[in-house]
Nucleic acid binder design. Structure first.
Lengths: 210, 210
DNA sequence: TCTACCTTGTGAAGGATTTCACAAGCCTCG
DNA sequence: CGAGGCTTGTGAAATCCTTCACAAGGTAGA
């Protein structure tokens, strides 16, 4: 299959969110125009995004809401019972562990790790924090698909390497540093400092008087 | 000045992170090639990114580390004492409030708000949580430049509207929903569910056997 | 069934970003 | 001082992404 732009995948995820809204409100069909307005894009963009994966709409009518939601979930791989581990049980790690959206979207938290002995053994959202000494062995047992990193910057790269060595192919990195890895590993960096700096740049460089 | 791509601004922020590392380790100069390797890009990209703002390097030698860091901070608007408010003092909001990087990067947390009376009055990182009843008046007093949203999805759009009405022009939205606003307001959406779905997509669609 | 109207799906055009490739400039060393 | 070796800065080419525009196909109502 043709490679799909990441920006396109992000939009599909957004569309799904809005479809779930529309579904709950009992709408049967939705036009690309309406979806576009929700997601802040254009109707042509919506149709093009969807057309990469098939023809889901009916001309003259729009897209069937529940069926399209099912398709998008299939495309995005939602509902496959992905297993997740969180590395770093600090403030952010614990907060994320309690995120209700995990279960809702078909992700299961199977393990939390921390290098600080004071945190080991505590329970976060029903999952016991485990020590880094067991990390590699635990990973081999748990066979997680996705790892969420909420560790300090200096630890991030090492953890990524160990995760990769143990077969993890998808990493969501909240550490305030970029990390690199093999080509077959997908890493998404989420970095508050960086986002703030982008906002700072925008504040400095936006003409708001013209 | 010509409009700069957002992707370019994000990279500048990354470069700055690495420059700070290099500076601490006492390096005097760095080549575009070395910076590129850190940031997972190409040397041509680094040079192009920087060239939008000026000529900071010396041919044959590279870029002077401390001077380039100073320039990048100036470009990104870092060190201007931006005032930040956090809306939503739940798990994520409180965790972010305690983020050490704020001060380090020249951002000052001036207020935290929550609609839950049980949370009002508590102190988070030295800042007292204030009720939403005072929201608009407080904003006018505090004059924050940037707002961080960590509220439930159903509250997000209303808060964005109130922030905008009170002069905020930069919003970092952690609520699990997209929000829309006026053209002169910069909104960055950070959405863990969406990032997980992008990873899920990658896991499903990546050939790792070829 | 026929007409009027609506919305999709999609090549092609347009725009934006990234990569290429190389002249120009700086340093070092003999 | 001149040669050799690096590395920047930058037009041009290539690639990637978005928008346009319209034929094709569907609905609804008479």
């Amino acid at each position: 299959m043709k490679r799909i732009a990441e920006s396109s995948v992000r939009r599909l995820s957004l569309y799904l969110r809005y479809l779930e809204d529309f579904e709950q409100r009992g709408h049967k069909t939705i036009s690309s125009e309406a979806l576009a307005r929700c997601g802040g894009t254009t109707s042509a963009q919506v149709r093009k995004d969807l057309s990469f994966f098939g023809s889901f709409g009916k001309r003259g009518l729009g897209y069937p809401v529940p069926a399209l939601a099912v398709e998008l979930r299939k495309i995005l791989g939602i509902g496959r019972d992905w297993r997740i581990v969180i590395v770093g049980a600090g403030k952010i790690g614990s907060a994320l562990a309690q995120y209700k959206g995990f279960r809702q979207h078909g992700f299961t938290l199977v393990g939390i790790f921390d290098r600080d002995p004071a945190r080991v053994g505590k329970k976060v959202d029903g999952v016991t924090v485990r020590p880094m000494a067991h990390f590699d062995a635990d990973l081999r047992k748990m066979k997680p698909h996705i790892a969420i990193l909420t560790v300090p910057a200096d630890a991030a790269q090492d953890i990524v390497d160990r995760l990769t060595k143990n077969g993890i192919r998808a990493i969501l990195n909240f550490a305030p540093t970029g990390v690199t890895s093999r080509d077959d590993v997908t890493v998404r960096n989420v970095n508050m400092a960086l986002e703030l700096e982008v906002l700072s740049y925008a504040l400095v460089h936006t003409r708001d008087d013209g």
